[in-house]
Write a protein that binds this DNA or RNA. Sequence first.
DNA 1: AGACCTTTATTACTTTCCCG
DNA 2: CGGGAAAGTAATAAAGGTCT
Length: 376
Amino acid sequence: MRGEDRESGALFSYVSCEARVPGDHPLRAIRAIVDEALEVLSPEFERLYSKIGRPSIPPEKLLRALLVQAFYSVRSERQLMEQLDYNLLFRWFVGLSMDAPVWDATVFSKNRDRLIEGAIAAKFLAAVLSQTRVKTLLSDEHFSVDGTLIDAWASMKSFRPKDCPDDEGSDDTSPPTGRNAERDFRGEKRSNETHASTTDPDAKLYRKGNGQSSRLCFMGHLLMENRNALIVDAELTRAGGMAERQAALDMLDRRPSGAGARRRRITLAGDKAFDVRSFIEDLRERAVTPHIAIDGNVRVNARPRRTAIDKRTTRHPGYAVSQRVRKRIEEGFGWIKTTGNLAKTRHRGLERVGWAFTLTATACNLVRIPKLLAQT
DNA sequence: AGACCTTTATTACTTTCCCG
DNA sequence: CGGGAAAGTAATAAAGGTCT
């Protein structure tokens, strides 16, 4: 059951909490947007939570706490609760009165499944973007996509042959010596085909480029609009060569279409990894102009690679603009990884990591939106 | 009113990972 | 190795509802 109105008795102390947050504090504008979005999500929460039973911790508060965690790079959910206990600013943002006890950190784990089930992260992102003021910031015809690697919460030592996870691979000579034993991978062939991480089976071994080391990771993808470089969609997949293109198409296909209006032609910018004939065809099929960077790598036969993008596309000034703007998507990845603490996830499993990725992307937007609104 | 059921938070404990 | 930290899990307590 959703414990909604348990703070009513503590109005005074909430006010004194409120009074200590400066009127021009950046979090105030952010909270206004967050609260409006949470209001929209309210029926969803109603559906997710039981009517009876012990009152739940309001999911609105859980969500606001998780946003604060991203804003202030709080390392873990336990640390978050410790901060929330003593930090008035955090208390105010989350909506806890001064003397209200903080909840146990494990409630995040408990509620995670429920919030994932309701796809709350994606709906929250959508709810923020659909606000009338926010909409004016968004371009509805020019977009960019890109993907990045998110390190999994799994070590290489957990990467074991699928058929016998307890076996130390082909390394028969040295028996396991206690936990966290040394493992020598030299000469041992490892691939996603035959091996999987025992810690997080969804994590895949992937190498970004030649000469770089393979990591156990996921792949995070963003769809960005080009006017203010705000994130309009996020998706997390298993790492793989095709994942980036597939995720791009998925995000395009689920783009909200304007009520009644027929779908207009849009442009999509992307780096040279997207310069693949079949992908370009997929875009054209969807009435999407491919503003994709040209992959002109010189191959072994000393000939430049054949690109799927020609002058018909590149001659337009819009192509150059897209190429310039698309790089701003890195700002989003940068924030999500450094401030949002997602360079290496602490969650395990595709669903959990994906949920965190989308929520952190939303947090990234929330930091920027008030500043952008103030400029106009 | 009180036995009993459902749901969720909390507690206590386990597993896993990381790093010096 | 060993200790610290965090997530996960199972058992239990708490809160509210329903049925008789």
